[in-house]
Design a protein around this nucleic acid. Sequence first.
DNA 1: CGTCGGTTTGAATATACTCAAAGCCCGTGG
DNA 2: CCACGGGCTTTGAGTATATTCAAACCGACG
Lengths: 221, 221
Amino acid sequence: MELFQGLSPVALADTMICARTHELRAETRIFYQGDGAARAYALIVGGVRISQSGSDGEQVVIRFVAPGEMFGTVALFTDRRYPAEAVTLTQSVALSWSEADMLELMTRYPRIAVNLVGILGRRLQEVQERFREIATQSVERRIAHALLRLAEKAGENTGQGTEIDFPLTRKHVAEMSGTTLYTVSRILTRWEKSGWIVTSNQRVTLCDFTRIIRIAEDGVD
Amino acid sequence: MELFQGLSPVALADTMICARTHELRAETRIFYQGDGAARAYALIVGGVRISQSGSDGEQVVIRFVAPGEMFGTVALFTDRRYPAEAVTLTQSVALSWSEADMLELMTRYPRIAVNLVGILGRRLQEVQERFREIATQSVERRIAHALLRLAEKAGENTGQGTEIDFPLTRKHVAEMSGTTLYTVSRILTRWEKSGWIVTSNQRVTLCDFTRIIRIAEDGVD
DNA sequence: CGTCGGTTTGAATATACTCAAAGCCCGTGG
DNA sequence: CCACGGGCTTTGAGTATATTCAAACCGACG
């Protein structure tokens, strides 16, 4: 749990006292976009998808949350409305803190604030990179990047290669890489026929990792 | 200066003591992408463009910095390399702090850290929105959004309308909205012929503000 | 007056989108 | 245990949108 790294045992106890625990089944909406932001969450077990939708209903996936990461935190410090919605991918467990407690903790233990700055900084850099990619690269490269990021975050090593261990539809990949589910399907089937990847039952396994990296970097296939 | 808001006069004096002043002419590179991140900056006068480039040289504009804003700050708290480059648009004045001083200040006055979290949070939200736009909207809408954001940040009210008061090439608009300078040129000339905007000498003035907003929202022209 | 950076414009083209239809797989319920 | 239904995926054909490349143009500044 990066946010609380470097805290004394006493401080850690303090933070746990005011935490609330949530047990959630798959496909549960934790908060909606536009809701008043009441609490900050930390994921312990499972997976969460954060998506943002525009006025027409076009959606994009902002990120996938893996165990150990925070989500819904930013809203507390900005306009107090969640700018996106959070949905569990699988059965999950999360902790949460109220806004007041969070602020209190942060002023009592500045280290938390500094940690949070680091976390947000890294997230900012990641989105900026994704922005550059979508602005300048071909769809194929973007899809490669998307899969690599997921593998990095939630990759399980199986016999066949690295499996991204939560359910992932073509639509979601499309919403991560700024394209349509049709294009994603075409490209993934091509990769599968070439043997770079295997997909089955909404699970994607990267077999030829270096090949995918090559596509992401060079755009060569 | 949002970062230091809510500080006592004493604290403010402390921060100013360790600040260094920079006077910069137009088109000066303040730092390069990949440089070891030594200092955090605050812009006092002028304008700065932050751009990121990929391995091939494709560039995007991450943001324009207006007076009162910080830049180069995130890098101190992540991997200590600037993830983008900063170039002055016009003659400018900036303050800067060393990494050590900044950390020291933040732990001494937690309020600074909390402020920074708010700033980063808002920037994160903005990039995420831009990401959604570029992923789902037509080029024309994206250009409209780009101009509106600039007008919001650096709009001067003249007789003809709202002028964006720093030099802005077609190329830069393209790099903000993820398109080519040719497409930007075509669209801006069309808007100019219709009377929604006026451009001259790298200055853009939005005459029919509501029209541009309509394009940004509906995609209607 | 010439040069250079920025801009406009045209024609040809590519890339990826749209829409429609069929197929597949999985879990459910009979 | 098998048949059915629903969500997800595949595939094709046609097309729009925006890119690419080339060339001319404009205007500011030395």
